[in-house]
Simulated scan of single mutants.
Amino acid sequence: MQHTVSTKTLIKAGFAAIGVAIVALVTFILPAEYNVDPTGIGQALGLTSIAQASQSNGSATTAAGTGSDAFETITILVPAGKGVEYKFAMTKQSKMTYEWMTDGGELFYDLHGEPEGDTTGYFESYTIATNADVKGSFTAPFNGSHGWYWKNKTAKPVSIQLLVKGEYEVIGLKQ
């Protein structure tokens, strides 16, 4: 018994395959390869950061503080109901370009700096807000440590992908 497929069935299957290919192109390939994200799904899945890192220098990570055009990618986990602080040592007037995004909801954050040698506990906040992703640049107003405090007010851990480039040395997580 031989079973033949009708032309109508082949045409339907062809259009279905084209539809699946278009959806894959728009939601996965364009955000990951070209940083084009018409649906916003690529950012939600973290795919746009792949394109941004590769467009910078063809790689996802580089040595910190090299001053090159490449972004360094850092992953930070903020436990449920907790806060973490991630810092960089910067000299006065040094510059940093940054972008960070979460794999979940919004986080409260405070971008701030602490002067070198200060023992009083003083710090200066530059931005305080609640967001799931932020992009910007920063010029250190003084020598010291500069970075973010993130607070996760949800019941699930949230992962942050932080992309940075500029003139700095990584201090890392501050305990």
Rank of each mutant, 00 (worst) to 15 (best):
I76T: 11
K95F: 08
S56P: 00
W148R: 00
G42D: 11
L10R: 15
A155L: 11
T7C: 08
E116I: 02
K12P: 01
P38N: 12
L173R: 08
A132V: 07
D133T: 15
I11H: 11
L25I: 11
L173D: 03
V158H: 05
F71V: 03
Y34H: 13
V20F: 14
V20R: 10
E116Q: 10
P79R: 14
F123R: 06
A129R: 09
T48H: 01
L47P: 00
Y122A: 07
T91A: 15
Q175D: 15
I41M: 14
S159L: 13
G42K: 05
F142G: 02
S68P: 03
E116M: 03
K87D: 00
Y109D: 04
A70S: 10
L111N: 06
T7V: 13
H3S: 09
M101S: 09
A53Y: 00
I160S: 03
E33H: 07
K165G: 01
K151W: 13
G105Q: 11
K92C: 03
S59V: 08
V20A: 15
L10K: 15
I76W: 08
V20Y: 11
L10D: 13
Y126N: 09
Q161R: 15
A16E: 07
M101L: 14
I171W: 05
T127C: 08
T102K: 02
K151S: 13
T9A: 15
I160W: 03
E33V: 10
S59W: 00
G117F: 02
G65E: 04
F71A: 00
Q52G: 07
L45E: 08
I22H: 08
A44P: 08
G40E: 13
Y149M: 10
S56R: 01
I160P: 00
W150I: 06
S159P: 03
T7I: 12
K8Y: 09
A140I: 06
F108N: 09
G144E: 01
I11L: 15
G46F: 06
A80V: 13
A13Q: 14
T48D: 05
K153L: 14
S137Y: 12
Y34A: 14
L173F: 06
K95S: 11
G144C: 06
E99A: 14
Y34D: 07
Y34G: 08
A44S: 15
A16F: 11
K95C: 02
K153I: 10
V36M: 10
K174A: 08
F88G: 05
I41F: 14
F142N: 03
S125H: 14
I18K: 00
S137R: 13
T154D: 12
G117H: 00
G105P: 05
